[in-house]
Design a protein around this nucleic acid. Structure first.
Lengths: 87, 87, 87, 87
DNA sequence: ACGCAACGCATCCGCC
DNA sequence: GGCGGATGCGTTGCGT
């Protein structure tokens, strides 16, 4: 224990403040999101269904990405060494 | 300080021990799972591919379930009040 | 089937896109946050401790706010509910 | 194409099923755990406190002390930030 | 040993 | 004000 810790004090403070700043921005955006849902609801849209739609679209995209990488894994497994006894 | 506290004390102890017991069982099973993977690997199976397979099967099942409940949501939305202006 | 449905369809699409947009912004900021932690770590800071600090400071701030508003309530009660800032 | 592949296929299927079985058991135990907490709650125990107790009992005393002192050092560094290179 | 990913936990918000 | 669901955090386990 000694000097280095003290030296880090300023760095530490900067880091923490940067994190806090970005977290503040995130929570503001989250708030904005909530307002969009509220507004939609007041226009007669069911928030639950809206969330479901958003969720599904996100998931579909993700699956597409995964299938791609999965394919890669399988191809490598076939070319490589999936099973030793079947070699 | 008197009886009631002691009664709660016993109950509390029982509860905590039950939880700890089930957690112990879980960690033992987790250990067993790890061993299965190890064994499979020593038999020449690529653990990564195995995990991918397990994961996919789980996901497929999940999706099936979700689609079901999703369908329900949509049907209710149609019968109910998804949009007021389009009514 | 006719106009009203299309109108709702457009509204719906707009809503969904707005939500997706704000979610994209959020995930970008989250990414930025991750990078800050990474950078800090590479400078020798323990991320876990950093997170703990951020968490504690948030909590302290919250308590401070609560305390402040409580104080305000008390002061207003004393003054007879006419002062806004305890001036 | 012939025997060996089929043999591997059977092995593979067996492995996957064994894994899925143990995972099923795990999730059932997890469910049981949840029920214990529910039951405790309905008997007037605060789940949060229960979890804390379990957590504390699990946690190694020594590690806790180390973590605590490290945190303290950091907090002092942030409040202080006084020295530049050697205390 | 590090980084990534999945799981479970704690918190928060909306609903009842 | 309690409850359930959704979101974000933290932890643990896995692969590299």
């Amino acid at each position: 224990m000694g000097g280095p810790v003290d030296v880090s004090g300023d760095q530490l403070r900067t880091i923490v403040e940067r994190i806090e700043h970005v977290e503040k921005e995130i929570s503001e955006l989250t708030e904005g999101k909530r307002e969009i849902y509220q507004e939609a609801k007041s226009n007669g849209f069911d928030p639950k269904v809206l969330r479901e739609i958003v969720r599904l679209r996100k998931q579909d995209q993700k699956e597409r990405d995964e299938h791609e990488s999965l394919l890669e894994v399988y191809l490598r497994a076939i070319n490589g060494a999936c099973v030793s006894k079947a070699a």
